[in-house]
Simulated scan of single mutants.
Amino acid sequence: MRFLMLNWRDPENPEAGGAERVSLAFMRALRERGHEVFWFSNAFPGAAPRYERDGICFLRGGGKGTSILAALRWYRRQPRFDLVIDQHHGIPWYAPWWCGTRCVAYIHEVLGPIWQVFYPGLLGWIGRWQERWTHWLYRNVPFWVPSPSTRRALQAHGVRNVTWLPNGCDTPPLPELEPKPLTPPVRLIVVSRLAPNKRVDHAIEAVGHLLQRGLPAELTVVGGGAMEVPLKQLAHRMGLTRQIRFTGPLPESEKNEELRRAHFLLHSSVREGWGLNVLEANAMGTPAVVYPVDGLVDSTLHGRTGWVVARERPEELAEMVARVWQAPAAYEACRRKAWERAKRFQWQEVLPRVCDWLEAHARADLARAEAIAAEVAHLG
């Protein structure tokens, strides 16, 4: 069969992130099953118009506002596809109205308040309005999402057919859960693209609150992005340059080692599609303390695999860390359950079901697709 992924970014785009990482895993798995797989994305400066990776043919054309037309022109010259995957990042490709074949929509999160973070004022409200209007327009198109939160948000916008198929995790769980005594200082970690919507400044402020409580704490920030300089300036203003360490992006092995030594992952994003780094931390025996937002309330089960604070405030993160610090037995039980749960989200567990579901849609076997969706419900 022939599959096409439409995504604004491809894995080699400088702005590629977790969405492209997991999308590549799914498309690679389809290719390994013997299917033809194509990926069309925006062009960017210095980018080749075509390349191949892992047997997948990558095409680039157009930019913001023009890549849909470039994709349409390219598409009309191709043999018929069995399934087109229209991946939204705030704005869709409108593929159901021009692809002439079966189509599913794929989104990681409903952006909602994230629009206001990047586009304050009227422009942000316009973004939210068009996103909601787009979901209404797509209400009869099957959607594929990585979390129950995103499914609920789409259903609230009138979408009728939404299937939750979880993302896999590249981080293999530790073979054995090693001891991690709660001895000071509290070792905290953030693993994130340093963008405004990730609110890494809240994690830095949480360190300040812990120190005010008399609890020694240190924070390692893994990742890079536009907010790196402002975040370093914040740490300096707060007098936390000795407690906050910025590593920049790290190779997987080094990132995993940082996760392994930490006591807690902090995640204070505005909203997530899932929160993959939560499962990565869990695989390394590290539970997370997270904000009560879409995606994070799915990747973290409160009181069982981590903790979800009541309000989106840095002092709430500090309060939860301090409370758990005084309950080592509860901490140990939680981190063990998190480690065990991470095993259920390894790629070898996830990929077969997702590929089966995509193949069922390519064959228009909707009964089979629904049965597969029911099979994954227990993973949550």
Rank of each mutant, 00 (worst) to 15 (best):
A203H: 05
W339E: 11
E349S: 04
P181Q: 00
R336G: 04
V104E: 01
E359L: 07
L279D: 10
Q233N: 15
K180R: 13
R193K: 14
P45D: 12
L182A: 06
Y138R: 09
V191M: 09
I204G: 09
D170L: 02
E178F: 07
A342D: 07
V354M: 09
E109M: 15
N13M: 08
G168V: 04
F118I: 05
A369T: 03
N277A: 15
T171F: 13
R353Q: 11
V200T: 15
L154E: 08
A322V: 09
E32V: 08
L30W: 01
R311N: 08
Q155G: 03
A156E: 07
P148F: 13
V141D: 04
A71P: 08
G158W: 00
G61K: 02
G61Y: 09
R353S: 12
L111C: 09
S253G: 09
W274M: 14
A288V: 15
R31C: 01
R28H: 03
W115K: 03
A203Y: 05
R336C: 05
Y94W: 13
R368G: 03
Y291Q: 02
Q233M: 13
Q212S: 14
C99P: 12
T101Y: 00
N282W: 11
V293K: 05
H88M: 14
G285F: 06
F40D: 05
K343L: 09
P175N: 08
P173K: 04
P185H: 05
T150I: 03
V159T: 13
R199G: 10
V309S: 00
A71S: 03
G127T: 11
